[in-house]
Amino acid sequence: MGVLSGTEIKRYLKEKKLTIEPFDHANIGAASVDLTLGNEFRYFIHHNGPVSISDEADGKPYYLGPGQMCLGITRENVKLPSDLCALVEGRSRFARLGLSVHITASFINPGVDNQTVLEIFNASSLTLALYPGTKVCQMIFMTMEGKAEYKGIFQGQAL
């Protein structure tokens, strides 16, 4: 199982295995579909004090101010075989509070054996309290056509 190409997306749409409404065929890319912004918006009411980013985790929080960025690292070390790659994505419950866990580097190469560094950004106007042990991201695994192995400078990164 892999990522659908633009051709496969068209086939899934034609066979009604995938439905997107309203839909514009011009929005199909090489391996994705562009989605447009709707007309409903929500916003935060400003208040004093931080917003907790926590799954009832223990530990002392790190306070990330509005518009600030920090690097974090996962507790888990992930070792991928040469025929799997992955994406790291944030969790929607925290994204809705303005937390981004990666700025642009969500791709995890095949063959890595390390902890994942997170480029954490606070896009909200509120201070976010980040607690160790909180499940802030998820990893999505994808099969590859062929095999490859990452040999770059971040191989083996750890705390």
Score class of each variant (00 low, 15 high):
22 P>E: 09
45 I>K: 13
99 L>R: 00
102 H>T: 08
56 E>Q: 11
154 F>K: 11
85 C>S: 13
108 I>V: 14
16 K>T: 04
97 L>F: 06
51 V>F: 06
61 P>A: 05
50 P>V: 04
25 H>M: 12
127 T>R: 04
134 T>I: 05
132 P>I: 08
137 C>G: 03
51 V>D: 09
95 A>W: 06
102 H>M: 08
34 D>F: 01
104 T>K: 03
115 Q>W: 00
33 V>T: 07
143 T>S: 15
99 L>W: 00
68 Q>T: 13
61 P>C: 12
145 E>D: 12
58 D>F: 10
63 Y>D: 09
73 I>G: 00
127 T>N: 07
96 R>I: 11
88 V>I: 11
19 T>R: 15
96 R>C: 11
32 S>T: 11
78 V>K: 03
9 I>P: 03
112 V>Y: 02
105 A>C: 12
88 V>C: 05
52 S>L: 12
57 A>Q: 03
18 L>H: 01
37 L>H: 05
51 V>S: 08
75 R>T: 15
107 F>A: 07
92 S>W: 06
2 G>K: 13
55 D>T: 14
54 S>W: 05
97 L>R: 05
62 Y>K: 07
128 L>E: 00
74 T>D: 07
36 T>C: 03
130 L>Q: 02
157 Q>H: 12
118 L>V: 03
43 Y>T: 13
39 N>Q: 13
38 G>R: 08
124 S>L: 02
